[in-house]
Amino acid sequence: MADKTGPDGTGETGRGRQPEATIRDDELERRRRDLEASLATRRTDRFEGKDEAKAATGYGQALKLSSEFIAGVVVGVGLGWFIDRLAGTAPWGLIVGLLLGFGAGILNVLRSAGLTSEFGQGGKPREPKE
């Protein structure tokens, strides 16, 4: 066999008669290429898809990300405290609110950096907005 993936002179194409190891290699190769392609789109999203990130200075970026995180924690704690006051469940609302707020803060930071999906888009990566 001169060419592993091409027609092998028998009139057949494809992988029908190849040993199993080659198939697995092909499969792996294909998956690796897919992964690379999706990573490439992600990267362009992160660095070019966002006009705001393009214009922002390093200082502005730092302030943006930290404000996103702090806002998440503050709102989580605030909501927890509010529920405590209404329902008299102190201190559980505050504790749960703090933990959820921490999660929301991380989510905010990831969203703001374009590393995860936007609101209501599920697993799909952010669409480039040009």
Binding site: I70, G72, G76, G101, F119
Partner: peptide
């Protein structure tokens, strides 16, 4: 997600 939404005006 709700906390994240409410934190938007704050941030």
């Amino acid at each position: 997600e709700i906390i994240s939404f409410v934190s938007r005006p704050v941030s």
